[in-house]
Design a protein around this nucleic acid. Structure first.
Lengths: 227, 227
DNA sequence: GTCTATATCAAGATAGAC
DNA sequence: GTCTATCTTGATATAGAC
């Protein structure tokens, strides 16, 4: 990756860890290792080494190990919520279109992001104080899921909550298992999960034709929402 | 908790950890703590204390911390597979009935068992050597899911695999989120997840009526399969 | 901003008395 | 079979030179 910088022109901007880029390298390294080996089992040494730094240097960028995790989580869930909000602006052409678009976006984000940060959502450490802000955003996202689920079925509030949880569980669970078996199939997963979400949220049934219409409408919505 | 045993009548059978019961107490304590705080973050001291033992004593029942986890996992997945096999013996009265029964059973097992051992399935530690046997059983269970999914949809093998993964993801994901919000609602979750699974596996749509028929047939199957 | 070196602490596992 | 030690190791985080 490093192109060249034999001499020293601009000290703060070099290819290797040096400077501001180091922080980003640490985040990328942590995302990889946290998702692969688990948060608790990943040492700060391993993160630093992978980022091209020494262990102690991490603490000039993050005050504690938990801060690295919190930064990762917030950076991952924020785009989801932002996308969900853009998705809610235009009217929904076909019931289920918003749901399809949102589920596909989230699955894609979790699967394709730097790493499978989605799997980190359920870490026990996330219950701590340090992660309150993240959990709040996460909660707002769950609300968005309820909103996009509502038009598909007349449901009392608590049933709607449960269904939103089911769909969230589907997305995160599917992401967790998707990397294990599928390799090149990963490209199909987001759409498949979105299909599945629409089906499971359609109480009076969802035929292939209807699903096709939902997909098409969702793709248009996705353009409007900027993705 | 200890009722009384001032003198010493039968040495191997007393109320507190003493004797063979200790092993079971350790497992119960570990299940609770591993699922609540995570495996890596749970110390053997904490497990021992909750089991009413001292840290060192654990090692007379298990050779290592990982052995506790492995025992828990195997004990949880084995009933699922056994149930799935019994479910496959009788003919399927209505397509989807087996799926419904299996999903409900698994969700119930994971939710209601000693603890949410299901959440432990995705621990990074489980990739290790020590857990090969567990992963094998898990793999067999995935095969059973493919079998019960097959009658619902004409699907090429790889698509069927993906769908089985989706359903497994749904079950485990739903279980993971179910405890967070729902309290007394937990009783509704298994059936709701089973409904959701059947819907998402029914490509040509699944109306309320059909779902009702599936549920009824599934309950009969469940009786035959011994639960 | 990065390094080396180290303080500090707690974890898993073992030894041997009772 | 359980206890009280203790060994050994490896972790996070800090201090201070460059």
């Amino acid at each position: 990756m490093p192109a060249n910088e034999p001499s020293s022109a601009t000290p703060t901007t070099s290819a290797s860890p040096r400077g501001a880029a180091a922080r980003a390298q640490v985040l990328a390294a942590a995302a990889e290792l946290f998702t692969r080996d688990g948060y608790a089992a990943t040492t700060t040494r391993a993160v630093a080494e992978r980022a091209g730094l020494r262990q102690g240097t991490l603490y000039h960028h993050f005050a504690a190990k938990e801060d690295i995790l919190a930064t990762l989580l917030e950076a991952t869930v924020a785009p989801s919520l932002a996308y969900a909000r853009r998705l809610l602006e235009p009217a929904e052409p076909v019931p289920g279109a918003r749901l399809w678009a949102l589920v596909r976006f989230d699955t894609e984000l979790l699967l394709g992001g730097l790493s499978n940060v989605g799997a980190l959502y359920q870490l026990p450490e996330v219950r701590g104080e340090r992660f309150a802000e993240f959990r709040q955003v996460r909660c707002d996202l769950a609300g968005a899921y309820r909103t996009v689920l509502a038009p598909l079925d007349e449901l009392p509030e608590d049933q709607l909550r449960l269904r939103a949880q089911l769909v969230l569980g589907l997305v995160e669970g599917a992401v967790a298992v998707a990397r294990e078996c599928a390799e090149q199939e990963a490209a199909v997963v987001p759409a498949a999960v979105a299909d599945a979400a629409v089906r499971l949220a359609s109480p009076q049934g969802c035929t292939e034709e209807r699903l096709a219409a939902v997909r098409e409408a969702a793709l248009e919505l996705a353009v409007l929402a900027g993705r």
